[in-house]
Write a protein that binds this DNA or RNA. Sequence first.
DNA 1: CGCTATCTTGAATCCCTTCAAGTCGCGTGG
DNA 2: CCACGCGACTTGAAGGGATTCAAGATAGCG
Lengths: 242, 242
Amino acid sequence: MNPPINLSEPCASCGVRERAICARCDASELSQLVAIGTHVDFEAGQPILWRGDEFTSFASVVSGVAALSRTMDDGRTQVVGLVLPSDFIGGLGREYVDFDVTAVTNVTLCQFKKEPFEELLERVPHLAQRLLEMAMDELNAAREWMVLLGRKTAREKIATFLAMIARRSFQSDTDGHEFDLPLTREEIADFLGLTYETVSRQLSSMKKEGTIDFTGRRHFIIKDQEALEHTSGDSTPNSSII
Amino acid sequence: MNPPINLSEPCASCGVRERAICARCDASELSQLVAIGTHVDFEAGQPILWRGDEFTSFASVVSGVAALSRTMDDGRTQVVGLVLPSDFIGGLGREYVDFDVTAVTNVTLCQFKKEPFEELLERVPHLAQRLLEMAMDELNAAREWMVLLGRKTAREKIATFLAMIARRSFQSDTDGHEFDLPLTREEIADFLGLTYETVSRQLSSMKKEGTIDFTGRRHFIIKDQEALEHTSGDSTPNSSII
DNA sequence: CGCTATCTTGAATCCCTTCAAGTCGCGTGG
DNA sequence: CCACGCGACTTGAAGGGATTCAAGATAGCG
């Protein structure tokens, strides 16, 4: 378990202070938020929320990666979003959880009980504003991903995914071209609407062609950024895909 | 062109008053909204917004159907959402339009200039609350659609689409089983991530099997609701797909 | 009543999946 | 520290669902 949040200097060392729901909050608003927040840890693989659960709390991701997913009756599953540090977990105004949330790596959340949070939301307009802003960003990201799922080839999907990972900084070194994949092949497949064999084949062929290289199964190097972005099929690189 | 909105009895006869952004507004708030709103018409096929345009106004759909879409450089296009009566058009907090918006049928909008609307948004919390609520609904719908695009077969996509059309009431008669498709085969294909030939084939085979029937190309009858919902692949019918 | 866009249907092809062996990397325990 | 074992990954071959290419048919308009 984590130590309690330092109340005298709240969030001073928090890595997501500038981008999470609290981004627009001033010191006084922040202290109100801190008063109802608790840090909670989840180990890789653990479920955070199940579809159908009643919402009893909301949370910001402080560190780690979680996946939002839906599994059909016959087991087909689709990851509908990655939940990264600073992202918010919780459907405001919804009674029940709509998608499973699973810790992909070890995850630390800054969690808020539902009622006090909703009450705070009414008193602190900065919170509601920021939440709306973040919801619009997510909506955009979801729609960009719909284009990927509906229209892109396996090759384009993989290229887009790798570019996204690079952009969202899973950077692991100094030169800026090495990254760690937070997901297994199967998780990538479920995110891209493919099978894990296809993911593996595409990664292998992109390695053979010299666009990327692998050192270990989860650690990759972008050797030809331009080729990567070109085969992603997006005319506008750095689009809003989360 | 439309007559000016009746200021003495604002929105009394508006068909979307209860579900649009103004749903939570009281009479006084409504009159402030009416003061900055204008009705605008678009004919079927006309563009409403282009990707990359600067946002200069927001709008509620009063009647008709529009499509939100993205077209790739080589012409592949994906419809990322249908915009139906009561839905809101406009990315709050965004400077530029992210997806093309096109009138699919004749469309009437209740349009608000950007600055006065944003100003109103700060003064009227009911507006911001409703907007957040609607954004969460759209986000959910987008994610449900991602499952369709990533994991469903052509047959399941068509069944889901028809069930959605039926649910969102494009009903055209009294017995409750006849509906009009607002979209062409090609538009349906672009919404489902298929080709129009595949859409046509699936519709034909569902007709042959007796699940649906067609009288005219756009007018269909659901003959076996249960079969339709079963082949849609959703365990929870009436899910939040818009 | 004829014309044209829209839609249907057929046949061939292809990309991705499915099924099936292997291989590799990594953590565990000896 | 190394061998072992298992889950994660790679690779191959066959199969299938959707696409592509190509004619026709039909509705709905003028």
